[in-house]
Design a binder for these strands. Structure first.
Length: 568
RNA sequence: CGGGACGUGGCGCAGCUUGGUAGCGCGCAUCGUUCGGGACGAUGAGGUCGCCGGUUCAAAUCCGGCCGUCCCGACCA
């Protein structure tokens, strides 16, 4: 490609709105443009990066036996009713009607449709299968953000494994695990595989691939000593037990005028330290109220609650609902004597006595609460969010917590979808068995953004060779006959050597071209100008290091070719 | 959805408090001088001031409604 004819609209200023560095650079470098909230156009440079990432994924999924499909994005709503996910997905699912008034949805993922195709499998002898496609997903996100990192329309590589038994599924799951690690490594991302919540996807186990980044939206708890890594949505930790205070024979109600928070009660004369309080949270899960009990100083991890309840929609109760359910406002709530509401308690409260909690009467609390004696806990479930500095659950080390971008997620789905759609095969004994499925996703646009987020400096992007829009730019410092001729020659030779080359033949000042090449992040630059040509040399610069060297003109192509081939 | 901010030539912004019919930087076009790290001069093109309504002799500016975008909290590749 010749830069003079290419559409690479670089910008001088950052786009409006403080955002992720990757977003600013992708916009400034002429890679993407926004259409509306959560919706982006890929420009030629951006499309090239995306294509290279796509190719890497394709190669690695093919290498573990994947067969490429292409399924539709427009689905009859009936299909999603059958899997039950119309309800689970709620408002995130785009819905529309056709001219006949038939309900349709736009696919958020493709478990349903692949499961339908899998009904054509008849025998265990046809398994295992690994199917995948690259297809647009549409999700009516409540809040798109950070440019490409969180959007409403994106292309995902999603693959689906089909097996006769759990062992087969585990094998394909592990194969994906390894392939994903390789894929991300090839695109220049160091990932950590973490235990994760499966969310609305259903299924048993899931692992997320995380890239540490301040632009990330997830939190990963990690132990440097044993390598334990988990999304805080799932993570556990060791914390020291709290010694109980002196027990009371019975619960004692006492006035606490104006006390509405854990902290206020801790500072109140006759109150109790946070770890001796029971925090009572009221949630509405799919329309049903639930009381959640946490130690006063412990934060609730809502995803853990969602996972336990298998809830589609979970929200804190409104003030009036609290009054209706418990007779008091937030700040004076408790579970003592409550019998008609589901009560879920965090295990850190187990065996605790002499606790203080709300009395379900404004401005009153109870002390001397023995949780197992006084509260009808219906379930004990770990709901606590871990905090940096707590003990690792697997070793003697300490957990740290960092922000990360989720670039991949793999699920063991079990038989949820195959049962919903009747995808069964006959086993050796002639008995019908539901196919065991797994699903595995990588978002293309998010991967582009993640690489950009990690690989940049104050001058712009620094693409790894494997995903760079062009591997090398030949920059002509002056557009005169001799320089142009030399440039054309090097350009043509690089092309026939199989190198992805951009010829910057624009009639611009050198500074403009150098800056643009750096902003766009092309890994290598070959600079040709009258000065060097007179001595038969070109200047060679690596974007990552900025190191420049002079190379004899005749050696340029060989040098670049070797470097590029080694790096991709 | 709750909270906050913003919307003015292609991009980034000022003007709004104190109404008088729009300006700056970059970019773009033409000409000239330049040309190995974002050149300079001259001339020029380009704007329903997000939309609708109201107040007023007069609205980018004041008032109301709506739409859009971004940021902070609950969701996911």
């Amino acid at each position: 490609m010749r830069w003079s004819q290419a559409f690479i609209p670089t910008l001088r200023d950052d786009p409006a709105g403080a955002e992720a560095i990757s977003h600013k650079l992708l916009v400034r470098g002429g890679f993407i443009r926004q259409l509306m909230s959560g919706s982006y156009s890929f420009l030629p440079a951006g499309f090239r990066v995306r294509s290279k990432i796509r190719r890497i994924i394709e190669e690695e999924i093919n290498a573990i036996g994947g067969q490429e499909f292409l399924l539709p994005v427009l689905h009859p709503a009936e299909v999603w009713q059958r899997s039950g996910r119309v309800d689970v997905m709620g408002d995130e699912l785009f819905r529309l009607q056709d001219r006949r008034g038939i309900d349709h949805v736009l696919g958020m993922t493709h478990e349903e449709i692949f499961a339908m195709i899998a009904t054509e499998l008849r025998s265990y002898k046809e398994l295992p299968q690994l199917w995948y496609h690259f297809q647009t997903k549409l999700r009516d996100e409540p809040r798109p953000k950070s440019g490409l990192l969180r959007v409403r329309e994106f292309v995902m590589k999603d693959s689906y494994s089909l097996d006769i038994d759990a062992a087969g599924q585990a094998k394909q799951f592990d194969a994906h695990h390894a392939a994903y690690t390789k894929i991300f490594k090839r695109m220049g991302l160091d990932t950590v595989a973490v235990e994760a919540s499966s969310g609305a996807m259903g299924g048993t186990d899931s692992v997320e691939f995380m890239v540490e980044s301040s632009a990330g939206e997830d939190l990963v708890a990690h132990s440097a000593d044993c390598g334990y890594s988990a999304n805080v949505e799932r993570a556990q930790s060791r914390i020291p037990a709290v010694a109980n205070g002196d027990p009371l024979d019975q619960v004692e109600k006492f006035p606490t005028p104006g006390v509405r928070t854990i902290e206020a009660l801790a500072n109140f004369a006759g109150g109790a330290a946070a770890e001796h309080q029971i925090k009572t949270l009221v949630y509405i899960a799919d329309g049903e109220p639930v009381l959640v009990l946490m130690r006063g100083d412990h934060p609730l991890q809502e995803q853990k609650l969602i996972d336990h309840l298998l809830a589609g929609e979970l929200r804190p109760a409104h003030e009036d609902e609290m009054v209706e359910l418990l007779g008091a406002h937030a700040g004076s709530l408790g579970a003592v004597g409550v019998s008609d509401i589901r009560i879920i308690a965090d295990p850190q409260l187990r065996g605790r006595v002499a606790m203080t909690t709300g009395a379900n009467e404004d401005d009153f609390h109870l002390r001397g609460v023995d949780i197992e004696r006084d509260i009808a806990v219906s379930e004990w479930v770990d709901l606590r969010e871990v905090t940096a500095g707590e003990g690792c659950p697997n070793c003697d080390g300490v957990l740290d917590v960092y922000k990360a971008i989720e670039v991949g997620h793999i699920f063991k789905l079990g038989t949820m979808y195959s049962e919903a759609f009747g995808a069964t095969v006959l086993d050796e004994n002639g008995a019908a068995q539901p196919i065991i499925m797994g699903s595995y996703g990588i978002g293309l646009g998010r991967a582009v953004a993640a690489v950009a987020e990690v690989h940049n400096d104050d001058k712009g992007l620094v693409w790894p060779v494997a995903v760079a829009p062009w591997e090398v730019v030949v920059t002509l410092v002056k557009i005169d006959e001799a320089t142009l001729a030399a440039g054309e020659r090097v350009y043509a030779e690089l092309q026939s050597a199989g190198v992805d080359v951009l010829l910057d033949d624009r009639n611009e000042r050198p500074g403009v071209k150098f800056n643009d090449a750096e902003l766009v992040g092309i890994p290598f630059r070959v600079t040709l100008g009258p000065r060097g040509l007179a001595e038969g040399v070109a200047e060679f610069v690596a974007r990552a290091t900025g190191e420049a060297s002079e190379i004899a003109l005749d050696d340029v192509v060989g040098h670049v070719k070797a470097l590029v081939e080694e790096a991709r």
